Simulated assay, not measured.
Amino acid sequence: MPEAYDFAAERRTPERVENRIRLALTLRKDTPWFEIEGVALNRSRDHRLRLLIRAGIASKRIQALTPFDVVERSNEGYSPKWDEGDRPHSGALCLSDGRRGLSIFAEGLPEYNHLEGSDGIVALTLVRSTGAIHNNRSVSPDHWMCPENQCLREIDFRLALYPHEGDMYGGNALAQYRLFQIPLLAHYDAADQKIFHSGRPAVQAAGVPQFFFREPEFPEIRLWGDRQFLELHGRNIVVSALKRSEDGKRYVLRCFNAGPRDEALSLALMRPIASADLAYLEEKPIRPLVFSGNTIEPFIVKAGEIVTIAFD
């Protein structure tokens, strides 16, 4: 590829440098998406590397996940001079003709372009190599320069293609995207709380664990192997955060309804609930929620609404 772009001559430089890209295509058993992982070794400046995905779905509209929402955008009306159609997203896109759909999950690739006049071609930006924030060099050129933005290094990327019926909502793409983004983590330990292993007994046997015995420091705390801390029911309800409240006295669950319609939300905990409130983002209570035992009774979350639930 050309080594750089000559802005004075308005052409690519004649010098060539080698750029490399490696792709690994994976289809795992019991996983509904096709995964693409890659590494791009970028040695060229002033260019953009994109991956074109031909969905084969003739649709002029695309759904894009954004912070606390899903928006629908058209690929018509772009101006080559002022607007080439580049748009942001938060990790998930969906092309659908109403009957079938293809969702694209992308990790750390926030720019896409739904090409105008194409048969469902989406261009994902893998590398944007520029030495300036703005190319208008006549206006304070030094102020806009950022040489490190040329990204002259190896760059990892990961994405997946998820075919399904219907659109992003009908295909349950949001839940699948969360599984792609945050896979389940597994950890094992001894069933006896007094036994733990750590370190290594000798350099010659570094792979052999060493076991220790001690009395539990917090015997009243126990994690049940056959239970889950929280179970949420609600179509198109996306969990944003689960944490301790800022004052440390309660738990806070924040989620939002990414769907186009109002949805019922209910929660079940692994232990009885003492209190539960619908709260503001600043975690001050708005009103109490109805609960019984370890279950918060269903309540309505409006389309696009962000809800914060405080409980103990």
Rank of each mutant, 00 (worst) to 15 (best):
S266A: 10
K243L: 10
Y177T: 06
L65A: 09
D167A: 10
A279M: 00
I104S: 11
Y280F: 07
S118W: 09
L49D: 03
I53V: 14
L232Y: 02
D262N: 08
N294I: 13
A173D: 11
H114S: 04
R137P: 04
C94Q: 07
I104E: 11
H47R: 08
L159G: 15
E263P: 08
A268P: 05
L115Y: 01
P209T: 09
F291A: 11
I286R: 03
V71P: 01
R244T: 07
A106R: 15
T31D: 11
W33G: 05
R87Y: 15
L278D: 03
V301M: 01
T66I: 08
E15S: 14
Y162H: 14
N149Y: 05
N257F: 02
E35A: 03
K243F: 10
H89E: 11
G85Q: 14
V122D: 05
F68C: 12
P110G: 00
G199R: 03
L65E: 07
E111S: 12
L281E: 13
G77P: 13
N149F: 04
D6S: 10
G85A: 09
V208F: 06
C255Y: 07
D86V: 15
L185H: 10
A8C: 01
A132F: 12
S74Y: 06
G98Q: 00
L93S: 13
D30R: 04
T308Q: 12
A24S: 07
A175L: 05
D189I: 04
F213G: 05
L52I: 04
N135R: 09
L115T: 10
L265H: 03
A175F: 11
L269I: 00
V238G: 09
L174M: 15
D262G: 13
S292C: 12
G207C: 03
T295K: 03
C94R: 00
S266Q: 08
F68R: 14
F105K: 05
I182H: 14
G171Y: 12
T31H: 01
L278A: 06
E72A: 10
A268L: 14
L93W: 15
N19H: 07
N135T: 14
R20S: 10
R22C: 12
A173S: 12
E35N: 03
R43K: 02
L269D: 00
V252T: 08
F157T: 13
Y78S: 03
I221F: 00
A310W: 07
P80Q: 04
G293N: 09
V301C: 02
A310M: 15
D6G: 07
E165D: 15
P285C: 08
R227E: 06
Q228C: 05
I195L: 10
A268S: 11
S79V: 01
I133T: 15
I273D: 06
